[in-house]
Each structure stands twice: as C-alpha cells, then as structure tokens.
Design a protein around this nucleic acid. Sequence first.
DNA 1: ATTATCTATAGATCTATAGATAATGC
DNA 2: ATTATCTATAGATCTATAGATAATGC
Lengths: 220, 220
Amino acid sequence: MTVDQRGGARRRPGRPPRSEAGDTKALLQNAALRLFARHGFAGTSIRAIAQEVGLSESVIYAHFANKQAVFEAVLAEFGPRTHDRGELGPGPAADDPAPYLLALARTALEEWDREEARLLMSLMARDGLLHSAALQEALSAMRHSVEALFERWIEAGRVRRDLGTPQSLALSFTGPIGLTRIMCLHAEATEDQRAAARADILDHVATFNRAVFGGATARS
Amino acid sequence: MTVDQRGGARRRPGRPPRSEAGDTKALLQNAALRLFARHGFAGTSIRAIAQEVGLSESVIYAHFANKQAVFEAVLAEFGPRTHDRGELGPGPAADDPAPYLLALARTALEEWDREEARLLMSLMARDGLLHSAALQEALSAMRHSVEALFERWIEAGRVRRDLGTPQSLALSFTGPIGLTRIMCLHAEATEDQRAAARADILDHVATFNRAVFGGATARS
DNA sequence: ATTATCTATAGATCTATAGATAATGC
DNA sequence: ATTATCTATAGATCTATAGATAATGC
C-alpha cells in the first residue's frame, strides 16, 4: 500500500516471483554506502537502509549478521584498495620525471573523481575513518612508492641533491594533491567545485615540475 | 551510591552547596567536545555527556535547549576562528619570503598542535564537518591570504614569474601542511606521530623554499 | 523567589529475533 | 526443502519533559 523508493506498493509476504527479484545484497550495500556517506554509521539506521531499497528492515539480517557487518561489507567492497597502488604499471617513462609525475596525477584524478570513490571519501570524512589505521597505511604505502621515485631520480641526477630528502620531496609533491582530494572530491561537492579541484591539482603538478626540474625538462 | 567520573557518590536531589559547585556548563561543553571528537554527534548520547561529568542527564536541558544546541555551543567555543587568520601580525619580515613562510608554518603548527585544536580536528573528521561550508570558507580565506603574499613576491621579483600563478604556488606551499595537519594532528595521534608530522611540515617548508627561492635567499 | 540539581517517566526510536508466508528449484 | 521476503514484537536505548528537592542570595 505504502509507496516507497523502489517505486511501487509494499511487498506482500513470501518470496517474490523471479520477475521481481534483484541482487538484493548489492542493492543494500549500495544504499548503505550512500547513507553512511551522508549520515555516518551511527546516523544511519538499519531501517533507513532497508527503506531506501523498499524492503522490510528485517531482510537485512538475511544478508548480514548485524549493522556492523553491513558497514564492513561496504568497506570491503568499496574501500581503499591495498594492492596495485601508485605504480602506473611496470614502466611507461619513469626516467623522465616531470611527465611521469603528471601522468601519475592524471591517473589518480581519474580514479578519485569516480562517484563511488567520492562517496567513499565522504564516508571516511564521517566516522573518523580518515584517521583509521587502514587508511593511514594505504596512504603511507602510496607515499613510500613516490619516495622511491625521488630517490631514484636523485641518484640519477635528475633532481638536485641539495633540494631535500626523497621523503620531503614526496610530501611536497603529494600533499597538495591529497589535500585537494580530501577537501573537494567528495559526494557533496558540485561539478564546478570538482572541476576547480582537478585544475588546481594539475596546476600544482606543473608548478612543482617547473620548480624542481627547472628548465631541464623543457629545454634540454 | 554509584561511583562516577567526578569521583564520588551520585548527587542527592537539590541544588548542591557552594563548596561543590563548578562551572557546569563549561564542564559539559568540554566533555561534549571530547565525546563528539571520539564518537561523532549521532554516536554521542546526551546521557553519555552528562555521565562523563557525573551528573544526571536532565541537567543538560538546564544549560542547552537540546542536543543540537550542545553541538553548536561546542563549535562556537572551540570551532575554527574566522578572524585573525594567517597574517602573523602587521609585519615581521613579509618581504623576505623564505623566513616569513617558515615563521608562518611554525605559528600554525603551534596553534594546531594544542590539544583543543586536535580534538576539534577529530570532531571535524567525523560528522562531515571537513566538508562543511564553514570550514571550506575558513580554508579558502587562509589560502587567499597566502596567494596575496605570492602575488606580492612575484611583483617584487622575489619569485620567478614563470614558475606558476600565485594560486598554484599557494596550493603547493599550503597543501602538504594542510594534509599533514588533517591526517596527523588529531586527538588519537600519538606523541610520536605528531612529532613526525611537525618535522614533515618543516621539512616541506625548507624544501619548498629551496626549490622556489633557490640560492637567492641563502647567498645574495 | 530563584537556581541547580535530582528522580521518574513518556514517547520515539533502534537493533535484532521469532515465526508466518509464498515462490523457487530439485 | 529451501529461499527470500514479510509482520509483529521484545528489549534496549535515546531525547526531552514534569515535578520534587535543597541550597543560595536577596
């Protein structure tokens, strides 16, 4: 009788016919991601998640052990990947620093600007996940891989040795990118804000490249 | 009878004698800040706040209209200042860029490493305040004031004009500082993590200064 | 009389479970 | 028989209010 999101009357009791069946678990996880991103874990009720999909709240317990398990499933499905971070594949042009860094940034941007990634960012900016050990590790892994690049470039004479440690250079390069991502590439940002954020990041990379690699890349 | 935080038996009914009176409102706000920082708004109950101070939960309504009002009072008291941002006072040495930027960073660090500021950071990293209009504005104000500095320095020939726009330079300078603050200067960070964060920030500033102002500052 | 606390409680959630119901697939 | 849903409900919170109680300050 009651009209709901799924667009129709409330279901009757009993298993629904094949024609109406969907991937309920996936629908629930998706709804949960959106609601957790908007209202946080404590601010999202089991009831709200089920309602969003147009189902009775008890159906959640057929798919998840409890509310916490829903959150963990969302993180496992959409959460930060631990593997395949930062490397851009085996080696397009890692020995030409400036273009390589630009390509790295572009790749990251493409990944981070996806809706799913933005929802995840909003979720992390609630619930304190920004400070969770998991994210800190993912971030530090990413940072280490960039440090390794600078170390190599210093050895190869592509970066003035007196400029700073590989650690410091890596932070100077990734900092503005990471900050802009956290602050602007989230679920509530408008398309305009996101476009500005992407431009800011690319401008930073260009400025960084000019300051660190000087005219070397452009002229020699 | 029940022992509580304030260290004693539960109060009896009736106004407490002068000897036991404290600034209840301030105590409540302080407890609320800590709990909101740890568990978020929705994850913190009125009950938990009162309990933390060792009072009955109904006492909260003598001091605040409702739960939301507690949150707003906490933000008003501890929240991001809109005024007196970034300027370091009228003018210590704004025309010698490198030392000025270093002083700017040191001042910010001192402010941000205070316990209260760290609690606020944790609070913002829950409840989505990181993406609130209020913080975005505070941040953009800070950024603009740094942009103005770079603009002045470019005009004065202290920064190579072809390096990048004032906007881009400002982001390249403040990005690593802001990111490190958000990620490391929060309530749950250990003293070691915070020390590393402070060192990272100062290293970045040094690297930035060398890359952007080159030997000019050191030698001429 | 006013102020600052308490106790008790109403009413609204919220999580989770038990048990009914109807379609499916063997 | 199994699966995927529902209805109904228990029990635990949670917010907020009403009304009692005792110290304070005039």
